[in-house]
Write a protein that binds this DNA or RNA. Structure first.
Lengths: 211, 211
DNA sequence: TGACGCTTTATGTCTAGACATTAATCATGG
DNA sequence: CCATGATTAATGTCTAGACATAAAGCGTCA
C-alpha cells in the first residue's frame, strides 16, 4: 500500500479500496489489513472515516520526531570532553501564581568551552525531594529524568541575541545570536520544571530525521 | 498499565507480568493486551524481548513530534495577512556533485512585514516539471507538497546572525539574530529539494507538544 | 571447559468471526 | 422544502485460537 501511495497509483485525494476489498486482494485477514491501515494513518498518509472510507491525504506539514537528548551524551557523542559547573542554586519563595521553586543555573562545557547555559526552575510543591539534592556534580536534568516521568512536555525553539550577562557566562561577544531550547514539563497538569537552555549559535543545532 | 508505570507500581527496570498473566488479570484477549503493550513501546515506556519478557525502561531523552506547517497557514492562524514575493528565480547549471537545479528566493510577509526568507534549490533531475512553474504568486512549498511525497526528510534548526544582504531583505539591523529552519527532502535517496528558511528571531519559534 | 544442539518460554504475527460505533444516505411527515 | 428518524455501509475494537520466531537455559559430548 505504501508503494502504491508513493508511486501515485493511489493519488492524493482518492478513496482507497475498503477493507473488505483489500482483504480479498491481499488475501489477509481483516485484522491484518487494519493494522496496515492504522500504520499508514500514523504516518499521516491516509485518513479514515467511518462509513466514508479511507482517503489518501495530501502530504501536509511534515511531522517528524524531535528528540532532545541528554546534554552530556550530546557532548560526548561529538567526541568532546564533558564538563559541568553549578553557577547558582537558590530557593525562590512562593509568590502569586507560582509556588516555592528551586532555581538552578548551570553551565555545560564541551572540551572546557561553554556549550549550554541552563536556567531551570523546579516546582518544589510537586518535587519536594529536589531540595535535598545539591546538583554540585551533575546536572538536574539527569536527576529529573530518573526521578519522575513527565506526562506532558512543551518544547519551544527560538533564537535571541545574548544580553550582557549571558554573553559573559557563555564567553561570547555581546549580542551574539543564541539558539534557545525552552521546555516545560508537567505531571498530570502540575508543572514540574521549566528550563531554558541557551547555546552559542555556531556550536549547536537541533536535528530531526523522518522517514 | 500506563497508570501503574506513572504511579511507580511498576518501577523502572522491573519486569512487568507476562502476557498470559496480564490476559488473566485484565480479562482481555491476548491480542488486546498486545496492542496495549505495543502502544507502550511506541511511547518509549517499556521494552520487550522475546523469551525475556517486558521491562519498564528508564525515561530517556524525550522524543516529541515536531511539525513544520505551511508558512501561509502559520501566518494566517496568527491572524496576520499573508503576503508573498518572489525575489529570484534562476536555473543553476549542473556542476560536479549536483545536477541542474532551480534556485528560488522568496519572501513571505505577515501584515506586510518580512516574516520568512526562503532560499530553495530544487533538483531538476528529479523534478523536471518544476521548471515550468513560475512561482510568481505562490510559494514553491505548497506546490512541492502537492506534487511529490517525500520519503525522507532531514530538518535542522539553528540560529545565526544576519549578514548584510539578508538583513536588508528582512528589514532588520545587520547582525540581528535569525532562527533558521533548514530542510532536505529525498525520494528514495534522490534529493528533491533543499531549503533554508530564515526568520527574524523575535517573530518566530518552533513549538512541539508531546503527551 | 567450551561448542553445539535441543527444549522451553516468552513475544510476534496472523486468522476468522463477532459486535460496537459512526455518519452518510434515504424515507417520511409536517 | 426542511427536519427528523430509520437504514446501512463503512471503520473500530474485541475474542479465541493458531503457528512463527527469538533467545535463555540445559544437557551432552569432544
Amino acid at each position: 500500500m505504501l508503494r502504491r501511495i508513493n508511486a501515485g497509483e493511489w493519488p492524493v485525494g482518492a478513496d482507497i479500496p475498503n477493507e473488505v476489498e483489500l482483504v480479498a486482494e491481499f488475501s489477509a485477514a481483516r485484522g491484518t489489513i487494519q493494522r496496515a491501515l492504522s500504520s499508514l494513518v500514523e504516518q499521516g498518509l491516509i485518513e479514515r472515516r467511518k462509513r466514508a472510507g479511507s482517503r489518501v491525504v495530501p502530504p501536509r506539514a511534515h511531522a517528524s520526531k524531535l528528540s532532545i537528548p541528554l546534554i552530556r551524551e550530546e557532548i560526548e557523542t561529538r567526541g568532546f570532553g564533558y564538563g559541568y559547573k553549578l553557577l547558582e542554586r537558590r530557593v525562590l519563595p512562593a509568590s502569586k501564581g507560582t509556588g516555592k521553586r528551586l532555581r538552578l543555573v548551570c553551565l555545560h562545557l564541551a572540551d572546557g568551552r561553554p556549550f549550554q547555559l541552563e536556567r531551570r526552575d523546579i516546582n518544589l510543591a510537586a518535587l519536594p525531594q529536589a531540595e535535598r539534592e545539591s546538583f554540585q556534580s551533575a546536572g538536574p536534568n539527569e536527576w529529573l529524568v530518573r526521578e519522575v516521568p513527565a506526562t506532558r512536555i512543551v518544547t519551544r525553539i527560538s533564537a535571541e541575541a545574548a544580553d550582557a550577562a549571558t554573553a559573559r557566562l557563555l564567553d561570547l561577544p555581546e549580542a551574539s545570536p543564541l539558539l534557545i531550547v525552552a521546555r516545560e514539563t508537567f505531571k498530570a497538569d502540575a508543572p514540574l520544571t521549566e528550563v531554558r537552555m541557551l547555546h552559542p549559535a555556531d556550536s549547536y543545532e537541533v536535528t530531526t530525521v523522518s522517514f
